[in-house]
C-alpha cells in the first residue's frame, strides 16, 4: 500500500462517523490497543515535553525506510500517534520528509497538530520529519 493509499484508508474509516464522540471513541480504542514503544526507549532523551501531554519518540532507519515507535501519557494523543505511525512507518526517508499529512486535516483532527495545543504532537511530527531529512 502506498503512503497515499494509507492516508485515504484512514479518511474512509473516519467518513462513517459524523459525531465527534464516535471519532474519539475510535481514537481512544486505537490508543488503548497500541503498545507502541518499549519501556527501555521511554527515556528522557526521547521525551517531547508538551504543556498538556508528554510524548516519547524513538526513530530508526532500516534499509532506507523509516521506523518510528512512540508513546504518550494521554490516550487521545497516543491514538493519534498510532494513526501517524500507521501512515509513515516503512516509508522512505524522502517520502516521510516531503509528504503532506493531509488525512489529519480531512478527518478534522488537525487541531491536535497545532503547536498551540501544546500536547507534544506538533513537535513530534517536526522531529519525525527532521530525522527523515537527516536520513535522506
Amino acid at each position: 500500500m502506498t503512503l497515499e493509499d494509507k492516508q485515504q484508508e484512514i479518511i474512509d474509516d473516519f467518513a462513517i462517523y459524523d459525531d465527534w464522540m464516535d471519532k474519539y471513541e475510535y481514537i481512544i480504542e486505537l490508543g488503548k490497543e497500541l503498545p507502541i514503544i518499549s519501556d527501555e526507549n521511554k527515556t528522557d532523551d526521547k521525551l517531547i515535553e508538551g504543556c498538556q501531554s508528554r510524548v516519547w519518540l524513538n526513530t530508526a532507519v532500516e534499509d532506507g525506510k523509516m521506523s518510528f515507535t512512540a508513546d504518550s501519557d494521554a490516550i487521545i494523543t497516543k491514538g493519534i500517534i498510532g494513526l501517524l505511525i500507521r501512515v509513515l512507518n516503512g516509508e522512505t526517508a524522502k517520502d516521510v520528509a516531503t509528504t503532506d499529512l493531509r488525512f489529519i486535516q480531512e478527518i478534522g483532527l488537525h487541531e491536535h497538530l497545532s503547536p498551540t495545543r501544546s500536547n507534544g504532537l506538533a513537535s513530534m511530527v517536526k522531529k519525525m520529519k527532521l530525522s527523515a531529512i537527516a536520513a535522506s
Binding site: 464522540m21 481512544i28 498538556q52 501519557d73 490516550i75
Partner: peptide, 11 residues
C-alpha cells in the same frame, strides 16, 4: 489523563 478528559468535555 486530564488532557483526555478535557478534550472529550470540549467536544
Amino acid at each position: 489523563h486530564p488532557f483526555d478528559l478535557g478534550t472529550l468535555l470540549d467536544k
